[in-house]
């Protein structure tokens, strides 16, 4: 059975049908792309998948659990983590603490333990530090662990957001334009990192991206959205050679 099964979800804002009858099935360990022109509804789909918006119809299942209409907190705890198109880090906290907040629900001690610095606090904090550093190493951020996250360069902020999302131990990772604002070299590194995540962390990844080099380079299957509706779906090469897709998105 597919890891993520989305059936006919849709949502309206006022009179505008932002997304209509969107369906997708993503297998475990797959790298799936969601592309389309600006305003096609890609981020709205992400917001519905993560519980920020409640779809007015349709259903979303992750790993056999129905998460339709659940809050974004519950959705994360069920196994979907995401990054944002406009970066949303905890700016006033260090890089390390950002990742440790991601670990919040997996490494626990009570508030009382925290105030009185019990042995449990020390043990769990040490484990958190170790785990967080492991994650930072994946993104080559280990040297900036004590830097305020707001002071990181742009490309590294994007990486940190992915590290934070991974810290919540998701089954499915949603990346909203991970390469936006990156130069070709950074994009190349990012492609390697995403592949690494899939292979080493056994991760399933759904990403929105405009950079065709990245999309054609790493995505195995694609869905194309246009005006809130699915224009095409299938293997990357088929979709990118589809005349309708070329007309709507890539340009003739």
């Amino acid at each position: 059975m597919a890891l993520l099964t989305v059936k006919n979800i849709g949502i309206s804002f006022g009179g505008l049908r932002a997304v209509d009858k969107f369906s997708v099935e993503i297998e475990k360990n797959e790298l799936y792309g969601l592309i389309g022109p600006n305003g096609a509804g890609k981020t709205t789909v992400f917001n519905m998948l993560t519980g920020v918006y409640k779809p007015s119809d349709g259903s979303i299942m992750i790993d056999g659990v129905d998460i339709t209409g659940k809050s974004n907190i519950e959705v994360n705890q069920t196994g979907i983590a995401r990054t944002f198109q406009n970066i949303r880090l905890f700016k006033e906290q260090t890089v390390l603490d950002n990742v440790k907040i991601g670990l919040h629900n997996h490494y626990k001690y009570s508030t009382i333990d925290g105030v009185f610095r019990t042995p449990k606090y020390k043990k769990v904090e040490r484990e958190m530090d170790e785990r967080a550093m492991e994650l930072l190493k994946v993104f080559d951020l280990q040297d900036e662990a004590e830097v305020l996250s707001a002071n990181l360069p742009y490309g590294k902020q994007r990486k940190l957001e992915i590290a934070r999302a991974l810290a919540t131990e998701p089954k499915l990772l949603l990346l909203d334009e991970p390469a936006a604002g990156m130069n070709p070299k950074e994009t190349g590194e990012l492609m390697q990192t995403i592949r690494f995540l899939r292979d080493e962390f056994d991760m399933t990844i759904l990403l929105i991206e405009h950079d065709m080099k990245l999309v054609s380079g790493i995505c195995e299957r694609l869905t194309v959205l246009n005006f809130g509706e699915v224009l095409a779906a299938g293997s990357t090469s088929d979709v990118l050679n589809n005349p309708e897709v070329i007309k709507a998105y890539i340009g003739e």
Binding site: T50, V52, S71, N72, I73, N76, Q77, A81, R82, F84, R88, L89, F90, K91, E92, Q93, I101, G102, H104, N105, R164, A165, A167, T168
Partner: peptide, 14 residues
């Protein structure tokens, strides 16, 4: 502090 810095992001990490 995560709520102070960015509530939406805080919710998104559970």
């Amino acid at each position: 502090m995560s709520i102070r810095d960015n509530q939406i992001a805080a919710e998104s990490v559970g």
